[in-house]
């Protein structure tokens, strides 16, 4: 199934102010993989994510999403297959009600209205918030907003889900619920995050970025246990893998 593959080769990007955000990024993500992209602030995670749906066009190097190379001409096709979930749900939920917001994508894809309605209901049911369908988006709680934001993307039936900090500013219960929900998806998932405990639960593979370059790419449990590597990238072991501060056990 070549259309779910993401392949990057020698990807570089320099911002107009001279800031080198990406340096020679190369990776291959295959269908159904769940990959975490971690790294300190300013490591280039967001810039990379913006490449993944054609918001930024590669300056040098190539990036292929499925059958298409990312370019201005193919951006439309790429956005159809890559669903992007934003860090701030208020940016993503711009329509007045949950229904309108989830219907926004399918309407733009020119589905007939009956099907749009069916899709909206089905997606909201999948993520377990069908009861919010007629609620205005600004009246949702943080956890609800995040869930609806994911629904807005799912309603377009993307093959690949790209998420920027999906668990940030969620309370523990909402966070747990979100992780359980994401576990049920069979999409290819790319998650940029600082929540390494979530990575441990959700992603079998982890890519570490540092100053715009990939410094590690491999099995999550290996990488998340490598104290030196994490320290070098401005990160720490997931709390679960650290020693217990109460009983004083070492790792």
């Amino acid at each position: 199934m070549s259309h779910h593959i993401i392949q990057s080769h020698g990807l570089c990007y320099t911002y107009p102010d001279g800031n080198k955000a990406l340096r020679e990024i190369s990776f291959l993500i295959t269908h159904g993989e769940s990959v975490a992209i971690i790294g300190a602030n300013g490591a280039g995670k967001s810039t990379l994510l913006m490449h993944l749906n054609g918001h930024i066009i590669p300056q040098t190097g190539t990036l292929r999403i499925g059958d298409y190379p990312v370019s201005k001409e193919t951006a439309h096709h790429i956005r159809r297959s890559v669903g992007m979930v934003f860090q701030d749900s208020d940016d993503q939920l711009f329509m007045p009600t949950v229904f309108d917001d989830v219907a926004f994508g399918p309407l733009n894809l020119d589905f007939p209205h009956e099907e749009v309605e069916e899709r909206v209901r089905k997606t909201l049911e999948t993520v377990g918030v069908l009861h919010l369908i007629n609620r205005p988006t600004h009246r949702l709680s943080g956890g609800e907003k995040r869930t609806v934001a994911i629904a807005t993307v799912l309603s377009m039936t993307p093959d690949i889900l790209v998420m920027d900090e999906p668990t940030s500013s969620l309370d523990p219960r909402s966070r747990r619920r979100l992780i359980e929900l994401l576990k049920t998806f069979h999409h290819t998932k790319i998650i940029a995050t600082h929540d390494l405990d979530m990575v441990f639960d959700l992603c079998e593979r982890t890519i570490i970025m540092n100053e715009g370059a990939i410094i590690a790419d491999g099995n999550s449990s290996d990488i998340l246990n490598n104290k030196e590597l994490l320290k070098k990238s401005g990160l720490e072991k997931p709390l679960r893998l650290q020693g217990c501060p109460v009983c004083g056990t070492e790792e």
Binding site: N53, H76, R79, F94, D100, F104, N108, M156
Partner: peptide, 16 residues
């Protein structure tokens, strides 16, 4: 950006 990601092309379609 969020709108573009979901296929916005200058015209907001509203559910009838």
């Amino acid at each position: 950006y969020a709108m573009i990601c979901r296929g916005f092309n200058g015209d907001i379609k509203i559910f009838k």
